[in-house]
Computed example of a mutant assay.
Amino acid sequence: MAGLTLAPGALPRSVLFLCGMNAVRSPMAEQLARRMLPPTIFVASAGVRAGERDPFVDAVLAEDGLTLGERHPRTLDDLEDDYFDLIVTLAPEAH
C-alpha cells in the first residue's frame, strides 16, 4: 500500500485500527477516536481473524460514557472499504 503524505497538522480522511481479533484494543481505539476526531473523518476497526466480543470492553468504555452498541468484532474481509489514509496496527500479527 502506498504511503500517504499529509501536510503538517493535516488530518487523515479515514483511519483504521487493526488488531488480532477486533475484540479489545481496536474497538476501544475506534470509539475513542470517534470521540476525539471531527465527525468528517471515517473511523473503523477490524481484526486479522475473527474474534468474540469481550465484555471487558463494554465495562471500560462505559467508564468514559462510550458504548459499542450492537457492534460485534469484524475482520478485514467484513469491511466495506479497503483503503484508509491511516492504518494503526495494535498487535504484531496486524503489522
Rank of each mutant, 00 (worst) to 15 (best):
M1G: 12
M1P: 09
M1K: 08
A2Q: 15
G3Q: 07
G3W: 07
L4Y: 03
A7W: 01
A7S: 13
A7Y: 03
A10D: 04
A10I: 08
A10Q: 06
A10T: 14
L11S: 12
R13V: 12
S14E: 09
L16E: 13
F17R: 04
L18M: 03
C19N: 03
C19Q: 12
V24M: 07
V24C: 02
P27D: 10
A29S: 03
E30I: 02
E30M: 01
Q31L: 05
Q31A: 03
L32C: 14
A33T: 04
R34Q: 03
R34S: 06
R35H: 06
R35T: 14
L37T: 04
P39H: 02
T40Q: 03
T40M: 15
F42N: 06
F42D: 08
F42I: 13
A44S: 11
S45H: 00
G47Q: 00
R49W: 11
R49V: 13
R49A: 05
G51K: 08
G51H: 10
G51C: 12
G51N: 07
R53C: 04
R53D: 04
R53L: 10
D54C: 14
D54Y: 09
D58Y: 03
A62M: 11
A62K: 15
A62L: 12
T67F: 00
T67K: 14
L68K: 01
G69Q: 10
G69S: 13
E70F: 06
R71W: 15
P73T: 01
P73V: 06
P73H: 06
L76P: 02
D77P: 00
D77W: 04
D78V: 07
L79Q: 00
D81K: 05
F84G: 05
F84C: 08
L86G: 08
L86A: 12
V88Q: 07
V88N: 12
L90N: 09
L90C: 08
L90R: 02
P92V: 05
A94F: 06
H95I: 15
H95L: 12
